[in-house]
C-alpha cells in the first residue's frame, strides 16, 4: 500500500466520500433510465456468486429438512389420520380426473383441436432472495447452461411462482408474481374472464382490467391464460381472496417466502419472446412496459 501523509489521506477521504455518493446517485438514475445498462453486470455477478450461494443454500435446505422431519416425527399420528382422509378424497378425485381426461381426449379428437405444446421442466434450487421490502425476486441456480431462457415461467407443484427476467450462464433471476413490476395475463377459471395479475409488493397481488366487477367472486380459481404464448395456459396461480376498493386480490397457491426449489417450464415458445428491448420512448417505465409485453404480443 502506498504510504500517504495523514493530511493527504484525510484530503482523499474528504473528496472520496462525496464523489462516491454522487456516483451512486448517478448509477441509480442511469439504472432507472435504462435498465438494460447494468443487466450484463448483474448476470455476471450472479453467475460468479452462484456457486458460493449454491453451496450455502444446500445446508440451509438440509436444516429445513431436518426441522420438517422432526415435526413429522412428533406429529406422525395426527398426520397419518389427516393423510388417510385426504387420500380417500384424492382417490375419488383421481377417478374423476381419469374420467374427465378420457372424455377430454375424446372430445378433442372430435373437435380436431390443436394439441398443447409439449412442456419440459428444469428443476432449480433457490440460491438467493431479494432480502428487502421493496423487491420480490429470487435467484435460482439454472441458466443458459441448463437450457432455461428469459421469459419462461417458474412454478412449483402448487402453482406459479414468477417469470425469469435475467438469465446468465449458471444463474437466473425470477421476478415473483408479487413484485411491483410483475404483470401476468390470467383468466378466472369459472367465468373465463381475462385479467392481468399485477403485483404490488404485498403478499396478495391484484387483478386488473377485469371486464366487469362481477366477473369474480371470492374463492374463484385464477390460472394463467397463456396469452402472449410465453406461459403455458392453465397454470394454477391462486384463489381470489378478497375484493375491496382496490379491486380483487388473490392469494397465491405457492408460499412464496418459503421456496426451496422451483421448476422452470419450457413451453417451447420462449424463443419467440423478443430479446431485451431497445430503450423505449417512455423512459423510466421500461420494466412495466416490458412486463405488459406478455399481454400485448
Amino acid at each position: 500500500m502506498i504510504r500517504l501523509s495523514p493530511q493527504m489521506r484525510a484530503a482523499i477521504q474528504r473528496t472520496m466520500l462525496p464523489l462516491l455518493i454522487l456516483l451512486s446517485g448517478a448509477i441509480i438514475v442511469l439504472g432507472k433510465a435504462d435498465q438494460l445498462l447494468f443487466d450484463s453486470l448483474r448476470t455476471t455477478v450472479s453467475d460468479g456468486v452462484a456457486p458460493v450461494l449454491d453451496a450455502v443454500a444446500q445446508p440451509l435446505n438440509a436444516v429445513g429438512n431436518v426441522v420438517d422431519r422432526a415435526k413429522m416425527a412428533v406429529l406422525t399420528y395426527q398426520e397419518n389420520v389427516r393423510l388417510e382422509t385426504e387420500n380417500e378424497k384424492l382417490l375419488h378425485w383421481q377417478q374423476t380426473a381419469l374420467n374427465l381426461d378420457a372424455e377430454n381426449k375424446e372430445l378433442r379428437g372430435l373437435l380436431k383441436a390443436v394439441p398443447d405444446a409439449a412442456l419440459s421442466y428444469v428443476t432449480a434450487r433457490v440460491i438467493a432472495n431479494s432480502g428487502g421490502a421493496f423487491v420480490r425476486m429470487i435467484l435460482i441456480d439454472a441458466g443458459t447452461e441448463n437450457r432455461v431462457a428469459r421469459g419462461q415461467a417458474a412454478i412449483t407443484g402448487e402453482g406459479l411462482v414468477g417469470r425469469l427476467t435475467e438469465v446468465g450462464d449458471r444463474a437466473a433471476r425470477v421476478l415473483l408474481i408479487t413484485d411491483l413490476n410483475s404483470r401476468i395475463p390470467v383468466t378466472i377459471e369459472s367465468t373465463h374472464a381475462p385479467a392481468v395479475l399485477a403485483g404490488d409488493n404485498s403478499e396478495r397481488p391484484r387483478l386488473l382490467y377485469l371486464p366487469s366487477s362481477d366477473a369474480v367472486k371470492i374463492g374463484d380459481r385464477v390460472v394463467t391464460s397463456g396469452e402472449g404464448g410465453v406461459f403455458p395456459p392453465r397454470l394454477p396461480v391462486g384463489v381470489v381472496a378478497s375484493i375491496d376498493s382496490t379491486g380483487p386480490r388473490i392469494e397465491p397457491y405457492v408460499e412464496l417466502s418459503q421456496l426451496g426449489y422451483v421448476l422452470v417450464v419450457d413451453y417451447g415458445l420462449s424463443r419467440s419472446l423478443p430479446q431485451p428491448l431497445p430503450p423505449l420512448a417512455r423512459t423510466g417505465r421500461r420494466s412495466k412496459a416490458e412486463a405488459a409485453d406478455g399481454v400485448t404480443h
Binding site: 451512486s24 456468486v49 421493496f134
Partner: peptide, 30 residues
Amino acid sequence: LPPLALFIIGLTEDLLAGSPIGVNAMLLLL
C-alpha cells in the same frame, strides 16, 4: 472500512438482491 469498500459492497448487494442498482451503495455511504 473506507468509502470505496462501502461503495463496492453496496453495489454487490444491489446486484445480488436485484434491487435498483446504486441504492445500497448510497445508503452505506450516507
